[in-house]
């Protein structure tokens, strides 16, 4: 990490969700087990892994939304983390403008700051006059653009991106990808969760690979991505007896490689 300052550490994190298994019975589903890694100032960290709830949970732990059940999250300085998810708590019958203000307030800005940022937020979202229409009349893409715009301008210390880059039309996707690239290159700390290895490869300095709640690899992007692809190639080979699944994996692999 060449002298970069560590701003946050996850140490031996364990987190479970309760699951109902019958009348009056619950069991614990461990979403994360013994997860540890550091986050350095100014780096862009990628989190990859097969579908499951672990990756999003990690983002929420970093954001301070949840506390782990085991282990701890150490913050070496006061940090504001902003989760760039699709709709930051939008209320359907309120207008885009009102939701943008709400979003900003939720992200910890005070009223005057939000109002000052509002023109730029509206401009980036490209919503134009729709900004004064209720959000329930928006398409998914419009909601995503507004959410992205608010979270971006809230200017957090750590920007947490959860699979949000695939929404909107081609122009907006490009714009958001460019914005993200700008931020990644700057000295802002970014954590990106994505299934798209291209995005990870182009934006991230380091990658954490989490699967089934465990860490399978931590390190420089190329190294970990290679590990990941090798592991999944192995899966394809061993499933050769089942043509359906193998074809699915092979198809998936091809678009990612």
């Amino acid at each position: 990490m060449e002298g970069k300052k560590i701003i946050l550490s996850l140490k031996n994190i364990g987190l479970f969700y309760k699951r109902k298994t019958g009348l009056l019975r619950h069991d614990k589903f461990w979403a994360l087990q013994d997860v540890s890694f550091d986050l350095c100032h100014g780096e862009t960290l990628g989190i990859i892994g097969k579908n499951g709830v672990g990756k999003s949970t990690v983002l929420r732990l970093i954001a301070g939304i949840m506390e782990p059940d085991l282990g701890e999250v150490i913050r070496y300085e006061p940090l504001r983390a902003s989760l760039l998810a699709l709709q930051v708590g939008f209320i359907p019958h309120l207008t885009g403008r009102q939701n943008a203000i709400l979003g900003g307030l939720f992200l910890g800005l005070c009223r005057s700051d939000v109002e000052a940022l509002l023109p730029r937020i509206i401009e980036f979202s490209e919503l134009g006059d729709f900004i004064d229409q209720p959000v329930r009349s928006y398409s998914m893409g419009m909601k995503a653009r507004l959410g992205f715009s608010v979270a971006l301008y809230a200017d957090p210390d750590i920007l947490l991106v959860d699979e949000v880059l695939g929404v909107g039309d081609v122009d907006f996707r490009k714009k958001s990808a460019d914005a993200l690239r700008e931020i990644s290159k700057s000295n802002k700390t970014v954590v990106i969760v994505s299934h798209n290895n291209e995005v990870i490869r182009s934006l991230c300095d380091r990658v954490v690979w989490i699967e089934n709640g465990h860490i399978e690899g931590v390190g420089p992007t190329d190294a970990v991505l290679q590990q990941y692809q090798q592991a999944h190639a192995a899966v394809v080979v061993s499933d050769a007896a089942r043509p359906g699944k193998a074809a699915l994996e092979a198809g998936g692999m091809r678009s990612e490689a």
């Binding site: 954001a63 939304i65 902003s82 989760l83 709709q87 708590g89 992200l107």
Partner: peptide, 11 residues
């Protein structure tokens, strides 16, 4: 009622 926003940002 506010489950969505509770899971996205800390308040």
């Amino acid at each position: 009622t506010n489950a969505a926003v509770i899971q996205q940002v800390y308040q």
